[in-house]
Nucleic acid binder design. Structure first.
Lengths: 152, 152
DNA sequence: CTCCGAACGTGCGTATACATACGTTCCGGC
DNA sequence: GCCGGAACGTATGTATACGCACGTTCGGAG
């Protein structure tokens, strides 16, 4: 086993754990930060996806969140109960339901966006802007490659 | 707002989503890959942490997995029920319990390691080895920076 | 030796993540 | 117009992720 092969092998086992570790760390920070607003990290992602103002179907929302329709439904039920989100029948497709932010939801999102600013800043600053840009690009690339993989 | 500031701002909002997207994609791939062995992606991580052969306390195990002691306990209960893991009283500290792989657990882990090889390979190959090494390094750096953040 | 704070595991409650199965609606081919 | 497959949402079950409260044990200060 050559030295080069060893390094590659080590890299292959470290990269997944590094990805997992970074994600979990970010998730925990976000949850802690948003807790006093009564919102979870995942709920923030959902609200952010809706914050563009468009009315999205649950399916489309799930796609944009890299999430699961079934999970999104559960989240919407909770958020609707809290009055942050409205679900209306789709204007033309009666199978679908659209989700939009309520006024309270928009206000809440603005608060959350501010509250999360220091996390976003810390993430970019802990690397450099240039490295962070590379990181972001590589992560997207990675997600695409993994998403296209078949079960062989 | 200068152009430079706009770019930085966009980066700050993209990076978290990119990290989340990549992690979830990896997690889904892993779950799908390990499903026929009756093991989840997270359980694989736990088994891998124990595969060094050391007997770890649940706390130490949680630390190495970047995970939560409470979660680790639930996982151990399931894995013990499946006969992949043994939990024994700690030799000197009667508060603690140690976890080790059973023979079946070791065998299972070897199977899983092979089954996951294509994922690890795909992750590194979808970038280049050099970029993957950088990515890994940056992710570790990111996790550290986030882990050390206080609530301000 | 005693006592108190810290560390370990446990149990419980809530929110995700996802598969799977199911009912309803849509739409393209006929 | 009919029909069968595809798309959408719903419902249920299992496994994570994590906070929090609790009981037990450890270890050091006095």
């Amino acid at each position: 086993m050559s030295r080069h092969t060893d390094q590659l092998s080590a890299l292959k086992s470290q990269l997944p754990l590094a990805l997992r570790g970074a994600y979990l760390a970010m998730h925990r920070q976000s949850d802690a930060r948003f807790e006093k607003y009564g919102v979870s990290a995942e709920q923030f992602v959902l609200l952010a996806a809706l914050s563009e103002g468009e009315a999205l179907t649950q399916r489309e929302l799930a796609k944009r969140m890299s999430s699961d329709p079934s999970t999104v439904r559960a989240m919407l039920v909770l958020l609707e109960k809290q009055g942050l989100v409205r679900r209306c029948p789709h204007p033309t497709d009666s199978r679908a339901r659209t989700a939009t932010l309520s006024t309270a939801g928009k206000r809440k999102f603005r608060q959350l966006w501010k509250a999360g600013e220091s996390i976003r800043t810390q993430m970019v600053d802990s690397l450099t802007a240039k490295n962070a840009a590379n990181l972001s690009r590589m992560l997207v690339q990675l997600a695409e490659a993994l998403g296209e993989m078949q079960l062989e």
